[in-house]
Design a protein around this nucleic acid. Sequence first.
DNA 1: ACTTATTTTTAGGCAAATCTAAAAATTTGT
DNA 2: ACAAATTTTTAGATTTGCCTAAAAATAAGT
Lengths: 217, 217
Amino acid sequence: MTLSEEDYLKAIFHLSRDKEEQVATNAIAGRMETKASSVTDMLKKLSEKGLVTYKKYQGAALTAKGRLLAARIVRRHRLWEVFLVEKLQFPWDEVHDIAEELEHIKSEKLIEKLDDYLDHPRFDPHGDPIPDKDGVIKSMEKVPIASAMEGDTGLVVGVKNSSSEFLQYLDKMKIALGQEIRIVRREPFDNSVEIQTQGRKFNISAMTANNIYLKII
Amino acid sequence: MTLSEEDYLKAIFHLSRDKEEQVATNAIAGRMETKASSVTDMLKKLSEKGLVTYKKYQGAALTAKGRLLAARIVRRHRLWEVFLVEKLQFPWDEVHDIAEELEHIKSEKLIEKLDDYLDHPRFDPHGDPIPDKDGVIKSMEKVPIASAMEGDTGLVVGVKNSSSEFLQYLDKMKIALGQEIRIVRREPFDNSVEIQTQGRKFNISAMTANNIYLKII
DNA sequence: ACTTATTTTTAGGCAAATCTAAAAATTTGT
DNA sequence: ACAAATTTTTAGATTTGCCTAAAAATAAGT
Ligand SMILES: [Mn+2]
Ligand SMILES: [Mn+2]
Ligand SMILES: [Mn+2]
Ligand SMILES: [Mn+2]
C-alpha cells in the first residue's frame, strides 16, 4: 500500500462512516483536494486490489478488506495524535498535520508498542474514538450542544470540526475536553446558545454550538 | 525535499564522513541498493539544487548546505532510534528500519520536542553521536577492540556494524553498550581476541573485535 | 420529455524515480 | 603506451500519481 492509496482509503472511510452508501467521485476529490479524474484513476486501482467496489458513474464503497485497512490507518493517526499531545505536549490544534504523515509508517509492532506506551487510549485529543487493532470502533453517545435541551448539563467529549481555527477559538473561550457545560437557554432568533461553565455564563453561535459534542450527565 | 533526495544526501554524508573526498557514483549506488544510472540522475538534481558539487565522472561531494541538511536527517534518525529503544522498549536491532521512515517526517517542532522529551540524548542506541540542530557532531574518542592494547580496560561505547545479525550476536554473547571489557590477550595466528567481562572470559573473532568500539578507561 | 447543467470518465501528457542496454570516459595491467 | 576492464553517463522505457481538456453519462429544471 502506497501513501496515496492509504489516504484515499481513509477519505472514503470518513465519507461513508456508518452509512453503507456509495461515495461520489467528487466527494472524494473534494476531501483529498485533488481532481475528479485522479480519483477515477485511483478507484480503478483500489478496485483491482479488492479494497473498494466501483462501478462507473456509481461511486465507490469500501469492501470489508478496505474498511479494515482504513480503520487501521485511522487507528495509527489517532494514536500518534495522542502521543503528540500527551507526551510531547503539542497543543491539540497542531497535531493533525503531523499525524497525517506519521500514520503511514509501516510497522505493526510500532503501533502496538505505542498503544501500550500510551496506556490504550480510547479517544484521540479531539474526542474521536480510536479503532482497535481489528478495526472495531466503540463510539460514545454524544450530542452537539445545538441539539441539547435547555437545562441539560454535559461533559465536552468531542468536536465535530477539528480545524486549527476552531480549536484555537475554543482555547480562547477556555472550553476544553472533559469540561462541564450547562445549557442555559437557546435563542430562537439566531439559534445561538447561552451556556454556563466554570462559573462563567456566555453566548456561543449556532455554528459553534453545532461543533461541540456533549455527553449529557 | 523528497524522501528520496533525503536518503541520497544521507548516503553521501555517511560515505564522506570527516574526509572531504569525492564520493563515487558506484559507492552511492551500493549503499542505496540502486543502479549507478539512477544515482547519476539524482546527482544532477541535487547539484541543481546546490546540495552537492558534481562533475561528470568525478563523483560528488556535499556542499555546506547539503551537509547541514544531511546532518539534520541523521539527527532525526538517531533521535527516533532513542525514542524507540528508551520509550517503546524496542530491542536495539529492530529500530533502524523504522527510523529510516520516521526520519522523513517534516516538522522542526516535532524534532525539537522529541529531543526535549528524550532529555537531549548525545548518542543513539548503537553509540553513534546525535548531531545538534546546527548539524554539529561531537564524537567520542573510541577504538575498536581489535586495536586496543593487551591489558587495556574499556567501556563499550559503540558498534561499527549495526546490522540486526551482529547486534543479535552481541545480545547472545551478553555484550551491551556501557559494559566494561578487559583485553586479556590477542592471538597473533588469527587476530582473535580473548576478553574478560562480567566475570566471564572468552574469545571473539577478529571480525567481531573490529566491530566493537571501546572507550579506554 | 427534452434541453441544460452537473458529474464522471477517457485520452493524452507531465514529473519523479527507477530500470536496462548501449555508449563514453576513466582506470588498470602489462 | 595502449588494450582491456571498469566505471559512469546517456538514451529510452516503465510505473505512480497527478493534471487539463474533451467526451460521455447522469441528474435537474421546466
Ligand atoms: Mn496521510
Ligand atoms: Mn483527531
Ligand atoms: Mn530514510
Ligand atoms: Mn543507529
